[in-house]
Design a protein around this nucleic acid. Sequence first.
DNA 1: GTCTATACTCTGATAGAC
DNA 2: GTCTATCAGAGTATAGAC
Lengths: 201, 201
Amino acid sequence: MSRPQTRIQQKNSETILEAALEVFSTHGFRGATLDQIAEVAGLSKPNLIYYFPSKEAMHQALLTRLLDTWLDPLREMDPDGEPVTEILRYVRRKLELSRDYPRESRLFANEILQGAPRMQAAIAGDLTALVAAKSAVLRHWMEAGRIARLPPEHLIFSIWALTQHYADFDVQVRAVLGEGHDPFAEAGDYLDTLFRKLLAP
Amino acid sequence: MSRPQTRIQQKNSETILEAALEVFSTHGFRGATLDQIAEVAGLSKPNLIYYFPSKEAMHQALLTRLLDTWLDPLREMDPDGEPVTEILRYVRRKLELSRDYPRESRLFANEILQGAPRMQAAIAGDLTALVAAKSAVLRHWMEAGRIARLPPEHLIFSIWALTQHYADFDVQVRAVLGEGHDPFAEAGDYLDTLFRKLLAP
DNA sequence: GTCTATACTCTGATAGAC
DNA sequence: GTCTATCAGAGTATAGAC
């Protein structure tokens, strides 16, 4: 990957990725068009292609930067910390990601829904390895009787499912709750309660 | 909607919807093409258009039949039943839907991810009304001290999120678990435990 | 009722002027 | 570095033969 040198190039690359994120995250890879991305970015279509060799390359650039941000909070779960505190912190940070980066969450969801054709490697590699490592930590805590004995991978799945739901199904959540609700604030309290009860030995 | 009269028409309509489900559920509405649907269905492209006036109409037909199936298990939650039993039954039935109809689950997820442009009405109407009704039931059980006091809508969201995750993120789940796992069987046990602990007063 | 042929629009990408 | 013009191919949908 060759990428930006000058200031202007950096700024334009940024503008394009921002626009691409907006479009890919709502329409998926095949549903997104360069026309749309160009319009959102306020640039001409050929200009997009000047910065990125193809539509595919834009998508790839977004996915690459995404996965890192996405896995960061899990990486930070400290094996030497207090188990419940560490897990609840992870839940909270993951929910904050959903609140602050809903488009990234939807981009990821779109990719997985489609069978992860452009992410197979990353999922089979980094992600699986990290989950394996953290599952070992969780299992260790369980064996020490510090949290309830549960299948660690499924515990992690449930954190992902519950937090991402508020970003990915935002439209549905807001429709059901109606006016005068702050979905993410309520979710924060609810998930805190849920995992406290679940983890109690 | 005018629809099938003869046997042949019924059968072909069915074949087309089946193929359309396959394609829409993996690529989203805009990402799906009539070419693909025609190929999967084993029919010619114009023949598709003979049965359905447009791509849009096929999608609509799928969404309409979907929502009903989708909400059925929630409808069946019995206000006069034993609370924990009723809720656990709902969780189990919803998980079975994810296992048996993963494409329908992904079709729905795709539509919501995109902001539900073709489902606004249904979500604001039937779905919201049903959730309101069942939330009242849950709240009643909580006030009677029969289950833990929790925000009822979020309790329902968590059932949706946890069960649908196994259909929508199937690729990820299987990659993380590796060989020799039955994700849905394990999820069944795990979610049973989770909700039992969560609902205990 | 179903197919072949085709009209017309949109899409991703390139050429070449400035 | 950025734009206008444009291409080839794919996309939805229609016309009309059988």
